[in-house]
Design a protein around this nucleic acid. Structure first.
Lengths: 177, 177
DNA sequence: ATACGTGCAAAGTATTTGCCGTTAT
DNA sequence: ATAACGGCAAATACTTTGCACGTAT
């Protein structure tokens, strides 16, 4: 239903493709988390970790594969699938479903925020707000549950009038491309 | 990840299989909506509409197919897929994703409610609350959007202590078998 | 050394679709 | 009459996996 705009090569600053282990991709925050979780750091994994660390949007596997391949062409989709799965299990990544059939990923450390999907453009806008968690925790409690995680997504139309240019009160926002 | 418990035959009160057009499946609320939307009422469609009207849980296509087949065996999965898709486009059904790979459906008129998924049992508990909409509408507005729809799902563990037996304040709840 | 990682192609799932005979309106 | 519909099997789309080889620790 809602499909996000594809933003190929957005994060790919590297011009030529470099061999794995190259300085550009060393020691990304996510690579560090991999090591901490006892994962072996192969060339492919380092590149994927780097791509994930650089991403500030919500790429799907195909997109991650594209970005990773641009850095080191000897990476297969299968490896990307295996890696995101692994990182999700380790709690390093979070899988999202914004509709459109494919899973999309973002780093777990990307802070507590929610997503607002512009139904017209498919764009994903992130925002922060503490109220929802509070409210939902309370609701879960009333139902006799201990909230372990939750999902909140808003779908809306951009209001043409009052287009907000400056940061909104209580909300830091950041949109995909 | 979270997979709902399969509840086959739960809604299947009919003992033997009846031919399409049988009285049991005539004039279900959803069948009526189909007519209002200018859809042709074939035997299969009537049965599927009936099954959907009776369901008070969130069946996936396979489950719908099972229930519908029990009433009239000459229905194929393809038809179920085509029907739910059509009904979703008409706004009669809503598609849900509770994890586990398959889409699940519920009638749009089933009232405003949310879902809490018991991560241990996979059970889905419905609850009502006005707060979330208010809060989210407000948030969307701050971001310069007009909220057209939203998604809220809670995932939690049942609190063993204080197991609530009676209806909870401000919440009508109803769980998938 | 050896358990873990990877590429490749084949296998799975869930869902859609082409073809063509059937049916509601 | 005729546009929709439905069955079937083949086709898609996304994701997982078996196998044989490579590599980080």
């Amino acid at each position: 239903m809602v499909v996000d705009t594809k933003v190929a090569d957005r994060r790919t600053r590297t011009q030529g493709r470099k061999p794995a282990g190259s300085a550009v991709v060393d020691d990304s925050p996510i690579a560090r988390l991999c090591v901490e979780n006892g994962l072996k750091m192969t060339g492919q994994r380092r590149v994927i970790a780097h791509v994930l660390s650089e991403a500030d949007d919500h790429p799907d596997v195909e997109e991650l594969y594209r970005r990773a391949s641009a850095i080191d062409s000897r990476i297969s989709v299968a490896t990307v699938y295996r890696t995101v799965r692994l990182l999700e299990e380790k709690g390093i990544l979070e899988r999202r479903d914004f509709g459109g059939g494919r899973a999309r990923y973002e780093a777990s450390d990307s802070g507590h925020h929610y997503h607002l999907i512009d139904v017209d453009s498919g764009r994903v806008i992130e925002f922060e707000d503490d109220e929802p968690v509070r409210l939902l925790t309370q609701i879960a409690q009333r139902l006799g549950f201990d909230l372990v995680s939750h999902r909140i997504e808003l779908f809306g139309h951009r209001l043409e009038k009052e287009t907000p240019k400056r940061p909104l009160p209580k909300s830091r926002n950041k949109s995909d491309t």
